[in-house]
Design a protein around this nucleic acid. Structure first.
Length: 313
DNA sequence: CGTGTTTGACCTGCGC
DNA sequence: GCGCAGGTCAAACACG
């Protein structure tokens, strides 16, 4: 987290609008005391108002800077979080390896964040050093942002999946769902979908999106179904044959395909690149969106009111 | 009636 | 060997 992103937060927030007015009145009355026969000239009152206007402009500028800094911090935190999730995922996979004692090619694949950070790497040293003959199946992990109110554990990645099981695991109170690819009868690909744990415990709220962890096992032995094929097979998903990284219609969305790494994922790479090249305007929209979210958050407004009242008193 | 989902039972592997 | 936990199966059920 860049410390340079922080700005001076000690603001004169004009929390007591009467203060300056009183000051002006005091000046006015002082003037009356000093020169009781001569009224304060209109010009002087005008100057006071202009001064106050300039001060408010400065405050506005400072607030804008703060908001921008907040946006940077938000992105930094998100990056940190994803690093943490990656580390946790690797640990989880390593324990899974102990249990299953099988060789796997694991490559975490993270898609769907506003900053466009896509991490497709072989960070697990062991799996990277595995002998070639041990690599039997391809496992990729994808983090997908979903609507928190949606508990269906459905990750729309363009394939046709059939749910064959659901299990409550020990370290996650939310059930994990098991899917098989049903687009082709002989397709060996399986998918596990479970809610991201950290969000469940720390950050889930009505306002915050949640994340699903989709673990793909194996490779499709068929081509990616075209939108029309998906529409025929699954009409309810026809409007969105690919996974939508952001389900908020009002927010800037980045629609990314969730593919197998090295398989049909060129589109995902291309679109991720587009996200990387996102102009500063997106940052601006993000900041505005955060500001709206903050102002709509009753907790935030309550805390702000408490802080203001505390300062007034 | 066909298809997909749910859910309890069962299987398998691992740690102690 | 036993218990635990993850993964899978399959009958029952729901839905269009």
């Amino acid at each position: 987290m860049g410390s340079s992103a922080w700005v001076d937060t000690t603001l004169d927030l004009n929390i007591n609008p009467f203060h300056h007015r009183n000051k002006a009145l005091r000046t006015e009355s002082q003037g009356e005391m000093d020169d009781s026969d001569v009224k304060l000239p209109f010009k002087q009152e005008n100057a006071v108002l202009v001064e106050e206007l300039n001060r408010i402009k400065d405050e506005n500028k400072k607030l804008t800077e703060m908001l921008t800094a907040l946006g940077h911090c938000y992105n930094d935190l998100q990056n940190k979080f994803m690093e943490l999730v990656t580390v946790n995922s690797e640990n989880e996979v390593s324990t899974s390896k102990k249990r299953k004692a099988e060789c796997e090619d694991y490559s975490p694949n993270m898609i769907g964040f506003s900053n466009g950070n896509t991490e497709t790497s072989c960070s697990d040293e062991d799996s990277c050093k595995m002998p070639r003959e041990c690599i039997k199946t391809t496992i990729s992990r994808t983090y997908v942002r979903t609507n928190p109110s949606d508990n269906s554990l459905i990750v729309r990645d363009g394939y046709q999946w059939r749910k064959y099981g659901q299990k409550v695991t020990k370290d996650n109170p939310s059930p994990r769902a098991y899917f098989k690819c049903s687009f082709a009868p002989s397709c060996p690909v399986k998918k596990k979908v479970s809610p991201a744990l950290i969000f469940d415990h720390v950050q889930r709220s009505a306002e915050n999106p949640s994340f699903l962890v989709a673990t793909y096992e194996g490779e499709h032995n068929h081509a990616h179904p075209s939108p029309s094929e998906v529409a025929i097979l699954s009409p309810k998903f026809s409007a969105n044959p690919v996974s939508c990284a952001s389900t908020r219609p009002s927010a800037p969305t980045a629609t990314l395909e969730l593919m197998q790494p090295g398989g049909y994922g060129d589109g995902a790479k291309k679109k991720t690149q587009e996200v990387d090249d996102a102009p500063a305007a997106i940052q601006q929209v993000l900041v505005q969106h955060m500001a709206v979210s903050l102002t709509r958050n009753p907790n935030f407004t309550a805390a702000l009111a408490a802080a203001i009242s505390g300062r007034v008193i």
